[in-house]
């Protein structure tokens, strides 16, 4: 893990921090952070992150926009909420990471990381059917790595899939959909329009 350490001699650029305070869900609480380390110490997968939440928040204040938005910290959060429960300053750490991930994705920072591919596959199914079909989500995710990699991953898991079908744990036939798919898609389209109008860095 080679984290770029903030250069202590450079001038702090508060523009990015101010943008986060204003536009990111929970960002207005970020100024409460006192850098105690409770969140990073509590994080069950903190060691797999480029930076723990505490350091990420310091980097936001230091104006390290590129490093923050392209870090895997945003994508590796499992939303266990341990940091939120323990934070002595009531900073909604999980919300901030979740919304930073969404903003990073919008702004084209999201790297081709597995978490991002999976999130995209999940959302594709939800948008199309109003429900997630685990077969299609899995297939879409596997083939996002390319055709041969998709086939390979599918074959690797074939036995598990057959077992699940046999046990009645996986559905066969057409995907389930919600009633009024057209209405859902119209609603999502409208929501996307509103969001596009409101966002902007």
């Amino acid at each position: 893990m080679t984290a770029p350490a903030p250069d202590t001699t450079r001038k702090y650029d508060l523009a990015f921090a101010k943008w986060v305070y204003k536009n990111v869900n929970g960002g207005d609480k970020l100024s409460m952070c006192m850098q105690c380390g409770m969140c990073s110490g509590s994080c069950p997968i903190g060691v797999q992150m480029d930076y723990g939440p505490r350091k990420l928040f310091m980097m936001i204040r230091a104006g390290m926009k590129e490093e923050v938005l392209s870090s895997n910290t945003l994508w590796n959060c499992t939303s266990c909420y341990r940091c939120v429960v323990r934070c002595p300053r009531s900073v909604p750490v999980t919300y901030i990471l979740q919304d930073l991930a969404a903003k990073a994705s919008e702004l084209g920072y999201a790297p081709k990381k597995e978490n991002k591919r999976f999130a995209d596959s999940f959302w594709w199914s939800a948008r199309l059917f109003g429900r997630t079909d685990e077969r299609l989500v899995t297939a879409k995710y596997y083939f996002s790595f390319g055709l041969s990699e998709g086939i390979k991953r599918g074959l690797d898991n074939l036995k598990i899939a057959m077992g699940m079908i046999k046990a009645g744990r996986m559905h066969i036939g057409m995907p389930h959909t919600v009633k009024g798919r057209k209405g859902l898609q119209a609603a999502l389209k409208k929501a996307a329009e509103i969001e596009a109008r409101q966002s902007g860095v």
Partner: peptide, 26 residues
Amino acid sequence: SKPAHIIVGEDGRPVLCGERTIDREI
């Protein structure tokens, strides 16, 4: 560092867990 939690080790001694905020080591 504000220690995140304490567990009891196998030898019965309390073990402090957390993040040192200066060098960011767990």
